[in-house]
């Protein structure tokens, strides 16, 4: 059973990584900094795993570790998406006031 799950997981990983390559290689260097903060926010999905382990009533140690993990991951979720938005808002096409 576990072997089958592992293989299924590997398939998912392979396909997702391949898709990631295709999508990310088309991101222009212009947006590489927002790209990094966006992927950082997305990989903070570990907040989900942190929630599961914290809420599972596994004893004090696990709860403490889990709570810290929830806080760290959530900080990346919120901070990552907000700061990406803040950066992307600044990118403008050349018809602004700097025009002659």
């Amino acid at each position: 059973m576990d072997g089958a799950l592992l293989v299924a997981g590997l398939y998912i990983f392979m396909l997702a990584a391949f898709l990631g390559f295709l999508v990310v290689s088309r991101v222009p260097p212009l947006l590489h900094t927002p790209l990094m903060s966006a992927t950082n926010a997305i990989s903070a999905i570990i907040v989900v795993a942190a929630i599961l382990v914290t809420g599972g009533r596994h004893g004090t140690v696990v709860t403490v570790l889990g709570t810290i993990a929830v806080a760290c991951a959530m900080c990346n979720v919120v901070g990552g998406f907000l700061i990406t938005e803040r950066m992307l808002k600044m990118f403008k096409k050349g018809d602004g006031k700097s025009e002659k």
Partner: peptide, 23 residues
Amino acid sequence: EVVTYEWIIVGLVIGSIVGIGIA
């Protein structure tokens, strides 16, 4: 599986506040 919420909420709130501050 999630049976208790208080610490999850603590973590979510602290993380969000810090995240908003940093952003």
